[in-house]
Structure formats: structure tokens, C-alpha cells
Amino acid sequence: MTASMLTSSDRSRQLRSGLATGFMILSFLIMLVPLVLIVGYVLQRGAGIISWDFLTRDLPIIDRSADGGIGPAIVGTLLIVGVATLMAVPLGVLGGIYLNEYGGNRRTAVVVRFLADVMTGVPSVVMGLFIYTIWVLRFHNQSAFAGSLALGCLMLPVVIRTTEEVLRLVPAEQRDASYALGGRKATTIGRIVVPAAVPGVLSGALLAIARAAGETAPLLFAIGFTTRTNTNLFHGSNVALPFLIFRNATSPFTAAQDLAWGAALTLIVIVFVFTLLARLVAARFDRRSRA
């Protein structure tokens, strides 16, 4: 008698539970397939060509030639993405703080929030054309900075919205505690709300950076092309990894295609390293507050 009370006799419930669990595991495995294939294939095709020379030498002047490296594209990518980050992340974080802490449902805030959402959906090539029109044409000059502007425009709405979302998650009790001790609004935001949100803000910023680092279209018109390293931010054409991959992958020459595979692997590694760094920083913040 008692055994029948405690054992579940509902076969259909057990079946449904088993099905649901199985479906989740299957979905996970399917999700792994493209990830593993992409990384594996890029590794297989790209690993062979990577060497110190490959990473540091100028691009080959002749596409047919296997002689050369991708140094200028690495420098260009780091420069363009770095400057874009310096512009977009501080501005976006401040924007997110405004939206969540000060804006509320005021008209300005509603409009900014709406525009940020629309901006997130703008195709990146449109962003590139926009910068081409207002910057490149006006100054008759393709440059790394024009690329940074285009990528910055792409990153800005992502940073704004993730910052706002993360700040919203900071418990109201923490704000109350600060106010109840005589804390003013700015003090409370600066010392309690923002520090609590740092890990989330960092991963939001990182998502934006990783996305920007892989963008080809915005750079198409903005930076031009060069085979030599150009560290001048404001003057002269530049070159970035995604654009180099795009250009060489469509080339008929095997040497150029191999270069593209090597560049693709390099780009993945760069994004991976930045992700890892951001996670470490976020974990440090987390540990400091929780340990």
C-alpha cells in the first residue's frame, strides 16, 4: 500500500520527462556541430600556414605569390577595432546609465531607446555607406579612423542596450540601502549600481567588440586597401583581417586562398583571446564582491 503511494505510477509523465531530456541533449549536440566544424575546418586549413613570418610580413603584392604575410591586416584590425571601442564603449555605457538611472520614461529616453533598437537592426553595410558619405567623401580620404567610425556606430547601440539591461538587474534594495545612509543619486550610481553591473557591462562590451572585429561590410568603403602596414589613424588607406579574408577568398589563386585561411584562423584566435581576457576581468570583479 505505502509503496504505491510513493512510487510514481504515471508512465506518461516519465515518458514525457525522458523525451524532453533527450530532446535537450540532442539540441545541444546539433548546436555543437556547426561550431566544431567551423573551428576544426579553419584550423585544418589555416594552421599550416601560420608562422611568425606569416603574422608579421607585409601582404604579397602579387596575389599569385605565396610570399608574404598578414602583418598589416592584424595591425589594421587592432587599430580600427581599438579606436572604435574607445569611442563606442564609454559613450554607450554612459548612455545606458542615462537610460536606466535618469531617463526612465521621459520622452528623450524613450526616443533614444527606440533609436538604439532601430540602429541595432541597421545592416552593417548601410553603416559603412553612411560613413563613406559623411566622412570619406567629404575629406577625400579613406582611413583607419573612418573604419573605426563605422564600427563604432555599429557597437554603440549594443553597448547602450546591454548596459541598460544589466543596470536594471541591480536590486532595488541595494539602492535603498545607499540612499538610507545619506547617499546622493550620483554617489549611489557611482559606488553601488555601476560596480555591481561591471561584469555584465564588460560582457556586453565584449560582445560588441567581437562582432565589430569580424565585420567586413562597414570597412568596404571606409578604409580602402593597402599591402603595407599603416599606423597613421587619420591618413591613408588601411587593411583589416575580415576584409582581407573576403578579398582573398574570392581570388582564383591558391596562394591567396591559403592566406585567407590563415587570416581567418588569426581572427578567431584574436577574438578568442579578447573574450578570455574579458571573462578574467569580469571574474575578478565578481570575486572581489562575493568571495
Binding site: 536590486p171 534594495e173 541595494q174 535603498d176 540601502a177 545607499s178 540612499y179 538610507a180 545612509l181 545619506g182 547617499g183 546622493r184 553601488i192 555591481a196 564582491s289 562575493r290
Partner: peptide
């Protein structure tokens, strides 16, 4: 802010800062 500095408050759920 000065009022709250003089008149402290303890809340229903413990809310220490992290």
C-alpha cells in the same frame, strides 16, 4: 540626504552590499 544620514534605516530583508 541629510535627513537620511540623521535617521538611519534597516530594511525587511538584509541588504548588505556585495
Amino acid at each position: 540626504a541629510q535627513v537620511r544620514r540623521r535617521i538611519g534605516m534597516v530594511f525587511q530583508r538584509p541588504n548588505p552590499f556585495p
